[in-house]
Write a protein that binds this DNA or RNA. Structure first.
Length: 800
RNA sequence: GCAGGUAUGGUGGAAUAGGCAGACACGAGAGACUUAAAAUCUCUUGGAUUUUUAUCCGUGCCGGUUCAAGUCCGGCUACCUGCACCA
């Protein structure tokens, strides 16, 4: 008997599948779109962690295939952007060259996974045929008033030398390189994602996504309801509008704080306070984001001016402090120290009055130790509102304020518009022409794609200008409107542009007339299952949802959510949970493992290593276990294939239990226990004294096919089949055939197991209790006060 | 600070819906085969006491509900992730 030779078997079936594709669109099967988050083609190649997500999505795709679907399972390359460009700079080559090289290498590595990718659909975001449509979408956004130019202080990474979106700043640092982000005043292209904030939030409810991701997006969008309230400045005509979510606490507003950047902050300073105020404003401007966030101790300065509390007419001092954000709400707040922790800390530090307006029992406390921040209690010290329920008042107050004429109900969002310009070379050029006469003019659609010029120097300049600005021959052009001299926009799009819509393109990848044909889109989109890491929870996944909604609004597609179901696989880490990286020297390459153990073994081990949604440490030795399992399975088939073993009720029972177990665990995405299930049943079958029948072996081959496709095909063909095992339908367990005649149950006395008994499944309660009593009769010495029988589970005696 | 997650043998991890904790695998130990080793096969493998038999303890910690708790409830601790002055 020949031992299992994975190289021979795997080579054979790789070749077979090339000639006989198993996933073909016959136009009859319903579609199922299972998508991987496409990789950026890094120069480092794949490690075993990258394999995991791809294996999971391929298992799921093959399962869907066997369940009768035509599976759309494409792969492509997210090749624009900083990582690709930084790599090119390091290697001192053109990004176009290094990117093409990297794609070639990574594609080879990915093909070793043996996924059923349809390479006819392959796409690449840096391909002009692709990014023509990325630019086209920008033009549509512009035409619809959703892309606009604005000069403002934006997040600037001094190391990457480019502006960043809010979403790309993590803990005040650049998401890419970790450098501390500063502010820089730049004229930027912005996308009005805030206009979609409500829909982006509300539609989360319709998605089958991990709660964690929905929650992260919810918090990122950060909707709150409250009111804008006008405060007159005492002795002046100025009015300061504040945003508050707690207008019910208006009577407790004892001072007011403006962001140092507020337009009135300097003019409010009285002559005696001017020098100090000027200094405070200047200092705040010089503080970096990180400094401003880390300063736990509140700082501030009194302007010398007062505002009038519109509810009670009292004069309250106006302060400046950098704990108030200039770009949220109105950049000014009313402060209710009794009911807000931050205001409380500020009031304590600067000796400002604290007036309680909500109390638990309707009586104000003598002195407050800390702010009472809950919105439940009885109003006190609040004039006409005294005695009201604060929770109810909180809802009413915006409308009361509105009626009284000094405010209005208002909702606010934390999300900011998307900073869309990058001062880098390796991205899609923004298709805008700046004409001195006509202003901003779009590059005419027929001139798209607007390609990048070939350049000698593409390093970032750091001046806030893209390297493209130095290419005079490219920058200088004619205005499409008036024909006069004009200049091209020299900023490029961020890395996220291409990935915000690529999933729409796979199904119509060669269309040069449209982004995607509407009929094709209606038939094959949207994505049914999207698999990738959780790191894109707010970035890519939010941007994609935004663009999908927009494209739906303008009629390109007919659905407004791109990904129905989302699965985030956990990371594979090195020892002690340390992220695999070249610099840590703990990267495990799949290539050697495939060579030594085979693709099937590595696929199984990627799943067996732990629950797919959790991070798992890679333990090199564990792969021996799955390899042994495959060898044992192989031997089982070799031992039995020519024996013509009779199909017994016992074998039939095992077979259907196997179908049931595997299907159940697969459906619930418990892929690690699917593998252990295979091992368990394999061990059971090996122990069958009279051998295993052909039908059971066939079932085993069919069930394991999505996981270990090569050996499954080989076994299937050894059992005498001419066609691929993937032509088989996924089997359904026969619940009747699965049933056991007898069952072992435990007998407990006072909660401790004292015996186990074999009962007939059909046995009645009295019969079982008799058997149970008999089995523990020596121990059942006391007074039995209670007898419990949970059918098919357990017998429990309570003895006194 | 706020929100979410996790905690089970030497290790990775199992355990529908409260019903025999430790499946499956790694590692370790013993044995068979072998001149020998590797591979393979068989057995053992949570801890303690015990000759056998058996008993007790055991799922981060403290308490509760229940005939019965890894699982439910209340209160903690540690680690991980996300957000972090958003008024």
């Amino acid at each position: 008997m020949a031992a299992y030779n994975h190289r021979l078997v795997e080579d054979k079936w790789t070749e077979y599948w090339e000639k006989h594709p198993i996933n073909v669109n016959d136009g009859k099967r319903p579609k199922y779109y299972c998508l991987d988050m496409f990789p950026y083609p890094s120069g480092n190649g794949l490690h075993v962690g990258h394999w995991r997500g791809y294996v999971i999505s391929d298992v799921w795709s093959r399962y869907m295939l066997m369940k009768g679907h035509y599976v759309i399972h494409p792969m492509g390359w997210d090749a624009f952007g900083l990582p690709a460009e930084n790599y090119a700079i390091k290697m001192k080559v053109q990004p176009a060259v290094s990117t093409a090289d990297n794609i070639r290498n990574i594609k080879k590595q990915i093909q070793k996974i043996a996924s059923i990718y349809d390479w006819d659909m392959e796409l690449n975001t840096t391909d002009p045929k692709f990014f023509k449509w990325t630019q086209w979408i920008f033009e549509k956004l512009y035409e619809n008033g959703l892309a606009y130019e604005k000069e403002m202080p934006i997040n600037w990474c001094p190391s990457c030398k480019t502006g960043l979106a809010n979403e790309e700043v993590v803990d005040g640092k650049c998401e890419r390189c970790g450098a501390e982000v500063t502010k820089k005043n730049l004229k930027q292209w912005m996308l009005r994602i805030t206009k979609y904030a409500d829909r982006l939030l509300d539609d989360l409810d319709t998605l089958d996504w991990p709660e964690k991701v929905k929650k992260m997006q919810t918090e990122w969008i950060g909707r709150s309801y409250g009111a804008e309230v006008d405060f007159k400045v005492d002795g002046k005509t100025d009015v300061i509008t504040v945003y508050t979510t707690r207008p019910d606490t208006l009577f407790g507003a004892t001072f007011m704080v403006l962001a140092p950047e507020h337009r009135l902050s300097l003019s409010l300073a009285t002559p005696d306070r001017l020098a100090e105020v000027e200094k405070y404003i200047a200092d705040a401007a010089n503080k970096s984001n990180v400094d401003r966030l880390q300063g736990k101790e509140k700082t501030g300065v009194f302007t010398g001016s007062y505002a009038i509390n519109p509810m009670n007419g009292e004069k309250i001092p106006i302060w400046l402090s950098d704990y108030v954000l200039a770009d949220y709400g109105t950049g000014a707040i009313m402060c209710v120290p009794a009911h807000d922790d931050r205001d409380f800390a500020f009031a304590k530090k600067f000796g400002l009055p604290i007036v309680q307006v909500i109390s638990k029992d309707g009586k104000a406390d003598e002195e407050m130790e800390e702010a009472y921040t809950e919105a439940a209690g009885i109003m006190v010290n609040s004039g006409e509102w005294n005695g009201m329920e604060s929770a109810e008042l909180k809802v009413e107050a915006p409308h009361i304020v509105e009626k009284k004429g000094f405010g209005k109900a208002k909702k606010n969002f934390k999300i900011r518009d998307w900073v869309f310009s990058r001062q880098r070379y390796w991205g899609e050029p923004i298709p805008i022409i700046h004409c001195p006469k006509c202003g901003n003019v779009l590059v005419p659609e027929e001139e798209l794609p607007l390609t990048l010029p070939e350049v000698d120097r593409y390093e970032p300049t750091g001046t806030g200008e893209s390297p493209l600005a130095a290419i005079e021959s490219w920058v200088n052009c004619k205005c499409p409107k008036c024909g006069g001299d004009a200049r091209r926009e020299t900023n490029t799009m961020p890395q996220w542009a291409g990935s915000s819509w690529y999933f729409l393109r796979y199904v119509d990848v060669n269309n040069d007339k449209e982004l995607v044909n509407r009929e094709v889109a209606d038939k094959y989109l949207p994505v049914d299952m999207y698999i990738g890491g959780v790191e894109h929870a707010v970035l890519h996944l939010l941007y994609s949802r935004f663009w999908t909604k927009f494209l739906c609004d303008i009629g390109v597609i007919d659905f407004n959510e791109p990904f129905k179901k989302l699965f985030n696989q956990g990371m594979i880490t090195g020892k002690n949970g340390i992220k695999m990286s070249k610099s840590k020297g703990n990267v495990v390459s799949p290539d050697d493992l495939v060579n030594d153990y085979g693709c099937d073994s590595l696929r199984l081990y990627e799943l067996f290593v732990g629950p797919p949604e959790l991070d798992s440490e890679w333990d090199e030795r564990g792969i021996d276990g799955v390899y042994r399992f495959l060898c044992k399975l192989w031997n089982l088939v070799q031992d039995n294939k020519d024996k013509a073993v009779k199909e017994t009720p016992e074998l039939l029972r095992v077979r259907h239990q196997l179908i049931d177990t595997i299907t159940d665990r697969l459906e619930s995405f418990s892929l690690n226990t699917v593998i252990s299930g295979f091992m368990e049943f394999n061990n059971r079958l090996i122990k069958m004294k009279d051998g295993v029948d052909k039908g059971t072996l066939e079932t085993f081959a069919v069930l394991i096919a999505p996981f270990a496709p090569h050996i499954a095909e080989e076994i299937w063909s050894e059992l005498g089949h001419k066609e691929s095992v993937f032509k088989e339908e996924w089997p359904v367990a026969d619940k009747e055939a699965m049933k056991e005649d007898t069952k072992e149950i435990a007998v407990q006395i006072n909660g401790k197991v004292r015996a186990t008994i074999q009962i007939s499944v059909s046995a009645g309660k009295d019969e079982v209790l008799d058997m149970a009593r008999e089995s523990v009769k020596e121990k059942l010495t006391g007074n039995v006060v209670k007898e419990i029988y949970v059918p098919g589970k357990i017998v429990s005696f309570v003895m006194k």
